[in-house]
Design a protein around this nucleic acid. Structure first.
Lengths: 140, 140
DNA sequence: TTCGGTGCAAAGATTTTGCATATAC
DNA sequence: GTATATGCAAAATCTTTGCACCGAA
């Protein structure tokens, strides 16, 4: 996953996409946030600079960025989806308070072997650990 | 995850729930299907025996079963959620044709250690590998 | 100038909720 | 008999789509 801003622009232009101000802003927001954002959160972050910006624009751009491999879509067990850029990592989700902690990517060789045995070419590995954080357990 | 039908009944009754015919049927459908079903699929499977059954009944029951730890909710990157019972396992999802393959549960000790280091008590580990199956790669 | 992108509004898809009635216990 | 569960309809939530206009290249 690329860390450099200019990379997205060349990838997209090479495919015939245009780099509009909204698209660049969405990309920057994702790239600099460090975390996982929902479409709604991206919209809020955009609203400063683009007062009339629309949610459908956010969704359409997320779809383009995802299709071109610039953004990952993650399901964290919530109702809405989350989007993120940056190095692959995993998530620890507390079922009590909803807190999400990032975990460094870990090797899961046996799963990858199994995938290969099924003739799969692996594109992405999503690991989410659900549980209860210490304060939610004590509060119980 | 319990394999025996009667277990659900005693768990639920002990908590003050009632074992209605619909609830029992939903539980049996999940227990015997072996796979992961959407709410809609459960509704279809119910329709034979319960012509007037409603989707909201399915959702309400899934919520009860999930809350009591009898059913797992899994996100497979689709729009809707899937529900399953039985031993924990992981999923291999083809982004080309949407096929889902079950993988035996694998040990991911490093992830569990990390979770412990963060003070988390792990309840469930969800691992989904996205990729492309052989025929979708060839068709490419 | 052209074709992809945006804003707006409306539709789709999935899940949740209020309420009167039915039913398990 | 009483409290929980169901069916129905309506709402809520999230995402997608059609269309006219805008703007990047």
């Amino acid at each position: 996953m690329p860390r450099v801003s200019g990379h997205a622009e060349s990838v997209l232009k090479g495919k015939g996409y245009r780099m509009t101000r909204q698209r660049r802003a969405i990309w920057e927001i994702l790239r600099t946030s460090g975390g996982h954002l929902s479409a709604e959160e991206i919209l809020e972050a955009l609203a400063d600079r683009f007062p009339g910006v629309n949610l459908s624009t956010v969704y359409r751009n997320l779809e383009v960025l995802r299709r071109e491999g610039l953004v990952r879509e993650t399901g964290l067990g919530h109702r809405h989806r989350h989007y993120e850029v940056g190095p692959e990592h995993h998530h620890l989700v507390c079922r009590g308070c909803g807190a999400v902690i990032h975990l460094a990517a870990v090797e899961i060789p046996s799963a990858l072997e199994l995938a290969g045995a099924h003739g799969f070419e692996v594109e992405e590995t999503s690991l989410t650990v659900f549980g209860r954080c210490r304060s939610c357990r004590e509060r119980k």
